[in-house]
Design a protein around this nucleic acid. Structure first.
Lengths: 363, 363
DNA sequence: GCAGAAATCTGTAACGTTACAGATGCTTGC
DNA sequence: GCAAGCATCTGTAACGTTACAGATTTCTGC
């Protein structure tokens, strides 16, 4: 029962122990020390070439996978990304696409994706604070970004890695991915104008969110470009209920000097918009034209006359994951900032002042 | 530098150490041993009442949160639920609703939700095997359940807790939540019949999935009830592309003896169906009626004439989380099995043979 | 031949938690 | 007075990993 009396007894690791293989298992099998095995598996320079090969071979053979709890406890690294989501958000699920996009990028890494939801009735800071304070993830992805976002401030102050879906205008240089809603706004107006429309209304995102402003600015610049007037439709936003959007739109469309063109920032809201228009006895493509963003490609089934602009949320997910991984790796700057257009993703070039982002149009 | 020479030196814990509070911190503050603190926080009987109160007070004050890695390493318990998802799945995002539902239930527990995706091009077993083998979660939720599902067999054999969205017919008694698609099928037919329709077609889920059979059986029983004929439309399923469904439907609707009623198992597919019908120059609510399931409440905006049946995926998420938690807690049997109807959830009463589930209709 | 460097390997300790097997002191019974 | 029992509390070890500070051996220069 005593220790084996073999002369080379020092390096010998105690027990084989069935179950999931650990470093100890491999150490036992190779006759090496646990430390050596650990270092060998991460290709450390102070381990002999042949030893590394041998260890890595054995590890592969037995299907070794580092124990996450062990690593996490020792190093503090969780290998987890947290996606913070508003649970009242987003009917018609662009959420699943973002998740799939993130997953695609994370698939080639040791990272897992955990979803941390919050109710919009509660404090949006709460989930962020939870993750940061408990260290339950290495990085956070947030959406519904605001121009002056307390979450961004909080994480920046603490040096906690994150990426935002949407830009801020806080003078902070942080990782983000965003759809260029300025371009969307201006292009949408151009398209409506080219269809002969001249009294244009915008169904915008809620005014608390950054992309509200981008969209509004693009829309406004489009209007002045063509010397066309805006029809104010800003008592509602795409976050309002279907019923509300519908009813309000009907009201508006019954006025004498009603709008003849709409720009809508969300697919589901567009459905309500169309319903409201039709409730007023008017027809899309005839009495009125609509340019709408959409994530799923369903609007043209709904009313073929709707002009659609696709926003690829799976792409956004991939980009956001890339950004947050970069942030975790300590990178900063423009490499972690990107804008996407209907046509694709582009690097975010010059940090322009908020309000006139990337004035050049997509082509 | 030597140990303090206070007489009562035994119980004294070494250092305060700034940062996140641990058991050690509380032990130091209370003058108790780490073990005592640990036991006190979980209300163990061998700890004095007053001590427990004191420890719990201090813990609350300093905002103590057990270190997940520590617990996980020591006990093997991850406090994680894994949701396994097919990334090609489900346009129009019922996925987000399921996630939100699960989150609602998990919110009151220490559990986190991690999303483990797989591509449908790959082996659906792979993510399940990964989670089970690496022990990266305490329980798994799967969807796209098949009548004879290898994942269910695998997890059952290994005694790994799980819940399925959808039933199996493997003679295994496992936790599940399901929508009663038999009732949907039969009720859908009844509704079409009551609208005077008699040549009915079913746009069903793919035949590999369990709920295909439930739906088909309900549909068939509805037909024979009313002595109405089926119009075979089974070369396509709701998993086919929008374009494919649309084109195929148009073909079918151009035949002389075309169907005059449709039952559709998914909202997005219904959009394609309608497009196909209209491509053939026919109108929903006039030439043809449709009864469709939907998760988001958007179909009535699309074509008000569509008869809709709502499937609440947020509810499904809540139920699935409840089931898998029960499974983790060692529960078994009917308490972890539930069916939902448009009207709500019901316990799954008698284990009926596959093919004739819960024949009583919702009322 | 030998000091010293280089190359390669090693054990120990620690991360925070809990199972386990005691300790300690106070009652109780007789 | 004291054994036995009880109520409370305790330290140690272990989960799997890695940082650290050595060990050991071999190679080099002179």
């Amino acid at each position: 029962m005593g220790k084996s009396t073999t002369e080379r007894d020092q390096g010998a690791v105690a027990a084989p122990e069935a179950g999931r293989p650990t470093l100890k298992t491999i150490a036992f099998m190779t006759g090496l020390g646990v430390t050596t095995v650990s270092r060998a598996l991460k290709d450390a320079p102070e381990i002999g070439e042949e030893t590394k090969k041998r260890v890595q071979l054995v590890a592969r053979q037995v299907g070794y996978r580092p124990n996450r709890a062990g690593v996490r406890l020792r190093t503090g690294k969780t290998n987890v990304i947290s996606l913070v989501l508003n649970t009242e958000d987003q009917i018609m699920g662009f959420v699943s696409d973002i998740i799939y996009g993130i997953s695609e990028t994370l698939a080639e890494t040791p990272y897992h994706l955990i979803v941390t939801p919050y109710s919009s009735k509660k404090d949006p800071m709460e989930p962020v604070r939870y993750v940061v304070e408990t260290g339950s993830a290495d990085g956070i992805i947030i959406s519904r970004t605001q121009p002056d976002d307390p979450r961004v401030r909080y994480m920046t102050e603490r040096g906690f890695p994150f990426a935002t879906h949407g830009r801020t205008h806080m003078g902070l240089d942080h990782p983000f991915h965003d759809f260029d809603n300025y371009v969307f706004g201006i292009e949408a107006v151009r398209r409506l104008v080219s269809l002969g429309r001249s009294r244009l209304a915008l169904l915008a995102p809620p005014s608390t969110l950054s992309y509200h402003h981008h969209t509004v600015n693009g829309f406004a610049d489009g209007l002045s470009e063509a010397s066309v007037t805006e029809f104010p439709h800003n008592t509602i936003s795409i976050d309002d209920s279907i019923e509300h959007i519908r009813a309000r739109t009907t009201q508006v469309m019954r006025r004498a000097n009603r709008p003849d063109g709409f720009v809508s920032s969300a697919g589901a809201a567009t459905l309500a918009l169309v319903a409201g228009i039709e409730d007023a006895g008017l027809a899309v493509g005839k009495d009125v034209d609509i340019v709408s963003k959409q994530s799923s490609k369903l609007l043209h089934l709904f009313r073929p006359a709707i002009q659609v602009v696709n926003e690829d949320f799976r792409l956004a997910g991939r980009e956001l994951a890339r950004c947050v991984l970069g942030s975790i790796a300590g990178q900063t700057g423009p490499a972690l900032q990107s804008l996407s257009r209907p046509s694709g993703v582009e690097a975010y070039e010059e940090p322009v002042s908020f309000g006139t982002p990337t004035p050049q149009a997509a082509e």
